[in-house]
Simulated assay, not measured.
Amino acid sequence: MSEISVIELTEADEFRAAFPVMRQLRTHLDEGTYLELVNEAIEVNGYRMFGLIVDDYLLAVTGFIPMTNLYDGRSIWICDLVTDQQERSKGYGEILLQFVQEWASDNGYEKIALSSGLQRTQSHRFYVEHMDYERASFVFKKDL
Rank of each mutant, 00 (worst) to 15 (best):
F64T: 06
L144E: 15
Y47N: 07
V21A: 09
D13Q: 09
E40C: 05
A136R: 14
G91S: 04
Y92L: 01
A12T: 12
D13S: 09
D13G: 01
I7W: 03
H124I: 03
L37H: 04
L70E: 00
S2L: 11
Q101P: 01
I78G: 01
D13W: 10
P20H: 14
E43I: 06
Y71N: 04
N45I: 06
D72K: 11
A104W: 00
A113G: 07
L52G: 07
T121C: 08
Y127N: 13
Y71P: 00
E3C: 07
Y47T: 04
M67W: 05
E8D: 09
Q101D: 05
F15I: 08
I76H: 05
D132E: 11
G117H: 05
Q86F: 06
A60V: 02
L114H: 01
V82L: 13
F15Y: 15
E31G: 05
E40H: 11
E36A: 08
A104Q: 03
G63T: 11
E94I: 01
E14P: 14
L96G: 02
Y34A: 08
L52N: 04
V21H: 10
Q85V: 09
L9E: 08
L144G: 14
F19D: 12
H124E: 03
D55V: 14
L25E: 13
R74K: 13
Q122I: 00
A136L: 14
L118R: 06
D56M: 14
T68V: 11
V6R: 00
A17R: 14
M67N: 09
F140S: 10
Y57K: 15
K141Q: 15
S123I: 14
P66M: 07
G117L: 09
R16N: 07
I76P: 03
W103P: 05
G51T: 07
S116M: 05
V38H: 11
W77C: 13
E8H: 10
I65K: 12
I112N: 02
A104F: 01
N107H: 14
M49N: 12
I4K: 13
E14V: 15
N45Y: 15
Y57E: 15
E40G: 02
W77R: 04
E43M: 02
R16C: 08
D132A: 11
E43Y: 03
I4Y: 13
G91M: 06
S5R: 15
Q98N: 12
